[in-house]
């Protein structure tokens, strides 16, 4: 039983270290990327898995807390992509255009309605 707990603790430490590395890389991505949408890409993915992995690691090291920690993991997994999607749509509709090397933009056609109403409100 004691060795089993020891093994769980080592696995937990591994997850904690891995998660903190991903959190660091996500923050580095937020800092380095050239425009808003790419920052969102780096930030969402890396920070979601990073936080999930840190929380899971703590759960393995402290099995009594596991239920609540799983609730946190599920909540992060559902809420993080939702909030990044809301931010991406909001910033596109407020007029921030992505950075392109070669322009590929299918969404532009859908946005004309929003821009027309903006111009009306300015006049």
């Amino acid at each position: 039983m004691d060795t089993f707990n020891n093994i769980l603790e080592y696995i937990g430490l591994f997850f904690v270290l891995l998660g903190s590395i991903f959190l660091f890389l996500g923050a580095l991505g937020i800092y380095r990327m050239p425009d808003l949408y790419n920052r969102l890409q780096a930030g969402t993915k890396a920070s979601t898995l990073g936080a999930m992995s840190v929380v899971l690691g703590v759960g393995l090291m402290q099995p009594g807390w596991l239920i609540k920690l799983i609730v946190i993991i599920l909540f992060i997994g559902i809420s993080n992509p939702l909030s990044s999607h809301a931010l991406a749509r909001a910033s596109y509709k407020s007029g921030i255009r992505p950075f392109f090397k070669k322009k590929v933009d299918d969404y532009e056609a859908e946005d004309t309605h929003g821009r027309a109403s903006d111009e009306e409100s300015i006049n």
Binding site: R32, M33, P34, D35, Y37, N38, P98, F99, F100, K101, K102, K103, V104, D105, D106, Y107, E108
Partner: peptide
């Protein structure tokens, strides 16, 4: 930074 972004 090897990226080539676009919206599809």
């Amino acid at each position: 930074l090897p990226i080539n972004p676009g919206i599809v």
